[in-house]
Design a protein around this nucleic acid. Structure first.
Lengths: 120, 120
DNA sequence: TTGACGCATTCCGATATAGGCATATGATGG
DNA sequence: CCATCATATGCCTATATCGGAATGCGTCAA
């Protein structure tokens, strides 16, 4: 079996950076395809394809406006993601088991070893 | 080009449901591979592969413990995701452009049409 | 009707996946 | 050293991706 379809999930849909950018732009309001494509430096077919994925998972909506098709944000599908990730909130400060101390140790150690921050 | 590697991003890594389950389990503390595999009903090689992906994006950490390798959660990589998604928080209630009114209209319309609440 | 514009779709190629299975690697105990 | 347990890796297949280029509509204006 291959990887799950990008359209199977909002999780999969937003795994693609360009789609995230599209969603970001759409916060500013509805926009036609060509507009988005131009602003994001992608070709029109690419934009259309990404928008198709986003539409299939319900993250955007289309509205016909004469020659154009205005895409608008429908962020409701992002909520479950926010909640799932939020379930880890108390872990990304003091990560690991009860290894908060471990992190502290690492910090101290790296500070002592080198003055510059080696984190990525 | 193909889809971005699952290891290219935390976004991509958590797109896979089983990996999300693994992370969920690890909130309970460090666990050896076989444990995880059994609890999630997957084979050991599968668990190992998923853990590899999670490790490569930095969402889990390994600690050698004799024969075993204890995997532990490192949720720090989830924070950027939470923040990105959080940027849409104000949109998933009143979605679309200035279509809050539109939603209102829909609600009113359905209320007039039927006395029962048709929302899911 | 013809032409131009806006957008969607299709075909192609390259790639990397997840799953299943076998096996290699590593550490432990006798 | 050998057997065993715990993990990691390799190989294989089927699948779906993203990118690029070409093309197929549908709409609007003259």
């Amino acid at each position: 079996m291959a990887r799950a379809a990008t359209t199977s999930d909002a999780f999969n849909a937003i795994a693609e950076p360009q789609r995230r950018e599209i969603l970001g732009l759409l916060r500013g309001g509805e926009r036609p395809v060509t507009d988005l494509a131009r602003d994001l430096g992608m070709t029109q077919p690419q934009a259309s394809k990404h928008l198709r994925v986003l539409r299939e998972v319900g993250l955007v909506r289309v509205r016909e406006a004469g020659k154009q098709r205005l895409y608008g944000l429908d962020a409701r599908g992002l909520r479950p993601i926010h909640e799932w990730v939020g379930g880890f909130e108390r872990f990304w400060n003091a990560s690991f088991d009860r290894l908060d101390e471990y992190v502290q140790e690492l910090k101290q150690a790296s500070q002592e070893a080198a003055p510059d921050d080696g984190e990525q």
